[in-house]
Design a protein around this nucleic acid. Structure first.
Length: 432
DNA sequence: TCTGGGGTCCTAGGACCC
DNA sequence: TCTGGGGTCCTAGGACCC
């Protein structure tokens, strides 16, 4: 049996956990620079507000209905996510953290120790609510795809228990018949339209197709796997990891600017900042990168025809996780694509060709003191920043100009809430 | 005026090589 | 009129997921 735990309207729920006055009211959370709506409470959904809608377009609607607006607060969401995942990892045999607000559970082998999966999941759900104030729903089924489907139905039952277990063929058939085909995991807009044209409207009708048909219609092996999983035959297990956190094949740090930038100096500082952040993520998962991509984008909504972005892909002489070295390559990449007089709206750094860190040193015949000292320096840097806050110690290349700490690429977050759980100064104060 | 970020996987044309 | 074939890399983009 597989489980899928999904935090309901996660970002909004995190804000509500520390601001109970937001309960029962329409709330939305905005993306970077207060750009788009990325999380909505049920009340906000009921007003017809859509995922990804630009804030400036729906502002009148938000005002009219008194919708509470929050800028995104990733320090808070990341920490709340860790708490939920940590609890699940302590009670389930295996977990796979699928995203910041979702994780798969592998419950195989647990059957002898629990009478009813439904009761067990309901207890986990209750515990998560008690410990974090984050509401979750749990779907249980013999495959990951069916667990996703069960979760979706659990969420839709008004006043339901928040748990749905598809442990019999009859329940699975019922669930498939009550799921529109476009809501199946892996069916997006394109495939959804295509299936409707062929008269396939529900997950049940899709599950009734043959594997060879799916192979032809839905992108080869991926489609065949999807149909098998809907039929209750598992073809994907949990992805392996030490603690549930997936080891990524690529790591990115990209950002739209608050104000458009043109100067090489500004863009260089922004790219250096993104490189530093990406390098930190890289070291956190114990990897080294052998390919670095620098990305510059113009305004993709502007009147200019595409292309709107340029990339420079650099193959590094050896895989590295050293911020200093990555900064050198990033700067060289930026030089290659930057054009004077061009107005840019976004930049980014992507790290690919990831290997396990340390491996590449085995290629050397003698121990490399220099490399060891650099590795120690990076470890110390990460330790200091973990203790005193991100960016407490930085490379000078990631500073905008001598003596200033104003980052020209950082935009407005008008409705920022405190980082309640990760910054001492932001700790919630309750007066008795 | 303002329209996110981080992933995975795939496609397709052109350059270049054998 | 006819004018190789196959491989890799580079670049830009699409589809899908959260």
């Amino acid at each position: 049996m597989y489980g899928l735990v999904d935090c309901n309207n996660f970002y909004v729920s995190c804000e509500r956990a520390f601001q109970p006055r937001l309960l029962g009211r329409p709330v939305v959370v905005l993306s970077n620079n207060d750009g788009c709506i990325i999380s909505r409470s049920q009340e906000a959904k009921d007003l017809g507000l859509k995922m990804g809608e630009p804030y400036f377009q729906v502002k009148p609607v938000l005002l009219r209905h008194g919708v509470q607006v929050c800028s995104s607060n990733y320090a808070l969401y990341g920490d709340m996510s860790r708490r939920v995942m940590h609890y699940l990892a302590s009670v389930a045999p295996e977990i796979e953290i699928y995203s910041i607000d979702e994780c798969f559970l592998d419950l195989h082998g647990l059957e002898p120790y629990c009478g009813e999966f439904t009761q067990l999941a309901a207890e986990w759900r209750r515990q998560i609510g008690r410990r974090t104030h984050i509401p979750v729903c749990i779907g249980l089924a013999p495959t990951k795809t069916l667990a996703k489907l069960a979760n979706r139905l659990a969420k839709k039952q008004p006043g339901g228990s928040g748990v749905l277990c598809l442990d019999s063929p009859e329940r699975r058939q019922w669930a498939l018949e009550h799921t529109p085909v476009e809501d199946v995991w892996g069916i997006g807009g394109q495939y959804g339209r295509k299936l409707h044209e062929q008269g396939i409207r529900t997950a049940a009708e899709l599950a009734a197709q043959s594997e060879s048909w799916a192979r032809k219609q839905l992108g080869g092996v991926v489609g065949a796997r999807l149909v098998r999983e809907l039929q209750g035959r598992p073809c994907q297990g949990l992805l392996p990891s030490e603690d549930g956190s997936l080891s990524r094949k690529s790591i990115a740090c990209t950002r739209s600017f608050g104000e458009p930038l043109s100067d090489f100096a500004d863009l260089s500082a922004a790219v250096a900042h993104f490189t530093s952040r990406a390098a930190e993520k890289l070291r956190r998962q114990g990897s080294a990168a052998s390919v670095l991509t620098v990305l510059l984008s113009k305004n993709r909504f502007g009147p200019e025809p595409p292309p709107h972005s340029r990339t420079a892909v650099l193959t590094l002489p050896t895989a590295t996780s050293d911020t200093g070295e990555l900064l050198r390559h990033a700067r060289a990449g930026l030089r290659r694509i930057w054009e004077p007089g061009t107005v840019y709206k976004k930049a980014g750094v992507l790290l690919d060709g990831l290997e396990t860190a340390g491996q590449q040193q085995l290629l050397l015949f003698e121990p490399n003191e220099q490399a060891e000292r650099r590795a120690q320096l990076m470890a110390d840097l990460d330790k200091i920043n973990q203790r005193f806050g991100a960016g407490a110690v930085r490379f000078a290349a990631a500073l905008p100009q001598k003596g200033t700490y104003v980052l020209p690429w950082v935009g407005q977050s008008q409705f920022q809430t405190p980082a309640y759980t990760t910054v001492w100064e932001d700790l919630l104060c309750i007066r008795g």
